[in-house]
Simulated scan of single mutants.
Amino acid sequence: MQLKFKVPIFDVVNLSFQVRGQSILSNISFKIFEGEYIAIIGPNGGGKTTLIRMLLGLEKPTSGEIRLFGKKLKDFKEWYKIGYVPQRASLVDENFPATVEDIVKMGRIAKRGIFAGSSQKDKEQVEDAMLKMDILHLRDKMVGKLSGGQRQRVMIARALASSPKILILDEPNTGVDVKSQQRFYSLLSKLNKEENITILFITHDIGVIVDDIGRLFTINQKAIICNDPKKMLSCDDMSELYGTDAHLLHNHKHEH
């Protein structure tokens, strides 16, 4: 894959994180460039979510440095460039008093500030995000009444509404059936290929996405970067490294 920009979106150097003397992540370094499609796997407790939270400035590393778009984390202010869908984001209360359109509009706040008025550009971006996630027909539905797969697409549309350069998703398929998962992955792949949006996501479903992803990060206190994920499943040390909680959901999209 040709990397178009020399300045990476994320430049992580010697990152470590400890809690009460216990090492959660140790000496992790990597770069993520615009247009990449990267999956993160690893055992529960291996530090995947902690790593994402450090990239987003929600946790402070014990040591090491993170640069975003060439700037040190403490100096970075353009957070609208990063769309984030946290773990269990789609598990909302069925009585939650908001429509699909209300939720997606919230994604514009990061771009314009909470007290700014809604502009024509805001409206267009909200429409575009709903179109990309195929939820325009659901715009007036209460979000709590939707299926898990529909809610998942609403939460991603909210993240897309700020026109991010990178989309970060933490186990987005929690509580979503396999058919919805496969539709979701094809939507993600389309965003990556057609919009050049960088995709970084945590998953257990490594079999589903192995055809599409460009690189695989295995996080288990340390990081192993796999630049050819298609060979990943034949690696002898994979199961030892990863643990036993991977779900190998094979991708049937090429079969008739």
Rank of each mutant, 00 (worst) to 15 (best):
D205H: 13
E240H: 07
K60L: 11
I32R: 01
R139A: 14
D11V: 10
F76I: 12
I52F: 14
R151L: 07
K81I: 05
I225Q: 01
S29V: 04
V154T: 05
G113I: 04
S63A: 10
I219K: 00
G107V: 04
R153S: 03
L200P: 06
I166Q: 09
V104L: 02
K6S: 11
K222M: 03
T244A: 07
I135F: 07
S29A: 02
D170N: 05
C235T: 01
I197D: 09
L55I: 09
G64D: 15
I199Q: 03
L191E: 10
R108W: 07
E255L: 15
G207R: 03
I41W: 08
D75L: 07
I168H: 03
K230S: 15
L187N: 09
I28L: 14
D236T: 01
G117C: 01
P229A: 13
T244P: 01
I135R: 01
V100A: 12
G243P: 00
I114N: 08
I103Q: 04
I38H: 04
M133A: 10
G35S: 08
K123G: 10
I135W: 06
T244D: 07
E59K: 10
T62W: 03
L15V: 11
L56E: 01
L58V: 08
D140M: 11
L91C: 00
D212S: 07
I41T: 10
D134Q: 11
M106G: 00
M155Y: 13
E195T: 02
V126C: 10
I41Q: 12
S118F: 14
S26Y: 08
D134R: 13
G107T: 05
S234Y: 14
L160W: 05
A246F: 11
F184P: 11
R215M: 09
K165G: 00
H250G: 05
F201V: 06
G64M: 05
K165F: 00
H137G: 02
A39P: 06
R112Q: 06
K141R: 15
D11I: 10
L73N: 08
A98R: 13
F33Y: 15
V210Q: 09
I209T: 13
A116K: 13
R215A: 10
Y80N: 09
